[in-house]
């Protein structure tokens, strides 16, 4: 799973997709995950980071993560490997 190179998250959580001209907002957790993805972290690594830092269990995070990645892909923000 890779975020498109042209995509960046601003400090206020705004995302602009230059390919489609669409704009999005993300919440801080959404921004954090995009930034991890840009660093090429795997799902496993991301989950470990998040679970260490936040009050959430593995299975809840996994479900939310998959849901989120589904949306990113829906919005054409990821490149399929």
């Amino acid at each position: 799973m890779k975020i498109k190179k042209s995509i960046a998250v601003s400090a206020s959580g705004l995302i602009f997709n230059p390919d489609t001209g669409e704009s999005f907002t993300v919440n801080p957790m959404g921004a954090e995950i995009i930034n991890y993805l840009k660093e090429d972290k795997s799902q496993q690594e991301i989950a470990t980071h998040v679970i260490e830092k936040y009050n959430v269990d593995t299975s809840s995070f996994e479900k939310d993560y998959e849901d989120y990645i589904g949306l990113l892909s829906n919005y054409s923000l990821v490149e399929n490997d």
Binding site: G30, V50, N55, F61, L71
Partner: peptide, 14 residues
């Protein structure tokens, strides 16, 4: 103490 978790969301600006 761990931080409060909020699930990730993304919303398209209409």
């Amino acid at each position: 103490e761990k931080l409060r978790y909020e699930r990730p969301v993304i919303k398209r600006l209409e």
